[in-house]
Amino acid sequence: MLNINNLQVEVGGTPIIKGLTLQVPAGEVHAIMGPNGAGKSTLSYALTGRDGYEVVGGTATLNGEDLLALAPEERAAKGLFLSFQYPLEIPGVPTLTFLRTALNAQRKARGEGEISVPDFMKLSRDVAKRLGVTPEMMKRPLNVGFSGGEKKRMEIYQMALLDPRFMILDETDSGLDIDALKVVSEGVNALRGPDKGMLVITHYQRLLDHIKPDRVHVLAGGRIVDSGGPELALALEADGYDRYKDAA
């Protein structure tokens, strides 16, 4: 599914990702952990095509298709979704308008017809109910004035509504209270499937208690320095990243 090979990314001329190789097969959820500043968010921005995150080497493909040659919106239409570590506020654009525009743009890019307004309203209501998003939140301009936790919830709400094939969750757990973490995790788990993949970036085991990963990778100094099963996350929680200092 997602295939990253020897990826190198520079930000403002500084190398941040320095030869990163990673495969996430369809149907699997992989976790990425790593110290602050390791390059986790940089990786997610490079994969989604943000300006200023310059890929200077390596490849990244989704289901065999070269991601790096595509515009951000084209990557999204291929089913790539990023739940942002810091979701943006979009003043003046009502959440529902935004989402309907996004959904229809993706459908159009895939050669599908627009979703009808009643169908969209039903879909958005159903998903909102599942994720504890209130009608009041959906009427407000996207994320404007939302609390940190509400913004994260909105990210997963958007994700559920757009139903992507490959999902990158960048610290979705940060800012969520215990109950919200549970609701959001359930929402994420519902999106798992045999033809889907997920990369879950987190600092904490407690998210991985809810969203059980197939593999755990350690990203330090711009490279994957260790990989293992779910037990690796527990070991990291106990010991920290000290032993990777030299590897990075």
């Binding site: 943000r50 515009a71 919106e73 999204a76 979704f81 935004f98 996004a102 890019a109």
Partner: peptide, 11 residues
């Protein structure tokens, strides 16, 4: 904001 919107698929 532009990147955020494009990431959601809006050209």
């Amino acid at each position: 904001a532009l990147f955020y919107m494009r990431q959601r698929g809006i050209p």
